[in-house]
Design a protein around this nucleic acid. Structure first.
Lengths: 149, 149
DNA sequence: TATTGTTATACTCTATAACTATA
DNA sequence: TATAGTTATAGAGTATAACAATA
């Protein structure tokens, strides 16, 4: 039955989601940040200083929520609100030195985690797995879009 | 570089985790339950009536947290607290008829979701992907255990 | 003494709605 | 008028600590 094989695959995927979430939470907690706040840093690190509206759109959360996340990051010294050069309503959320250092640390830890997770795999195995992940992501995005409409 | 291929694989895995979480949240919300409460039903459905202590251990959350989750499930009519036959301190959290119906509905939806996600895959592709998931879960469980010690 | 589950308390994350300052 | 971000308010989920009832 190909059906039961699919169900087993999804079960494992969901299990993996839970384990990955738990591991990430603990790892991030050791670095003094949470799973909700970390993506704020990643977006700014990748795209440069952003307004809170842009962050809210990128992360698919409400503007009010971003206010709270940024408040926390400011209190912990990882970002600062800089005046927007052309719009006095908006603030540009910008990485501090500590924020940049944290992003670098998170990236290094993620690299080490990757090595622990996939280091012993044969290239052909990794390639097949990656193709599977690709297809699943694409399929899932399509499902979400068609559901939303 | 096999290294960059691993990093790309983990990136996709994390992306998949986010998408899967979002989709699950919405799907569960339509059924009138949350991502924190649903696993309570799954455990009871699979293993029979459980004490709150057992649920807390199974789900790796605090007993206090289980009190709140069960309170919500009781209020929504999906479970009831039955007296424990041999321990008057404990209560056995038990599925109601509505709870059993909900679990059946969730299982059916998950099956349909599986078909949408993997239905068009070739058996060989699915098998390779599943093996990859298996290995990743096992490796991750091992990492978590060694970290904890 | 130890365990079960509660009350007390507190924090994070999330949302909607009303409001202020600016565009 | 419209937009950016705030205050006000509310609710879910999470945790620790102190406590009552029972083992």
């Amino acid at each position: 039955m190909s059906d039961s094989a699919s169900i087993a695959a999804l079960d494992r995927l969901l299990q993996l989601t839970v384990l990955l979430g738990r591991d990430m939470d603990e790892s991030l907690a050791r670095d003094g940040i949470s799973r909700s706040r970390a993506p704020v840093l990643w977006v700014i690190s990748a795209a440069g200083p952003r307004t809170q509206r842009e962050l809210a759109d990128s992360l698919h959360v409400s503007p009010r929520n971003i206010t709270g996340l940024v408040d926390g990051l400011v209190a912990d010294g990882f970002v600062s609100r800089q005046p927007h050069p052309r719009d006095r309503r908006a603030a540009l959320v910008t990485l501090t030195h500590a924020g940049e250092a944290l992003v670098a640390k998170l990236a290094a830890e993620q690299e080490q985690f990757t090595r622990q997770l996939f280091g012993e795999w044969k290239p052909s195995e990794l390639a097949a797995f990656s193709r599977g992940l690709d297809r699943t992501v694409i399929r899932l995005q399509h499902l979400i879009e068609t559901e939303a409409s």
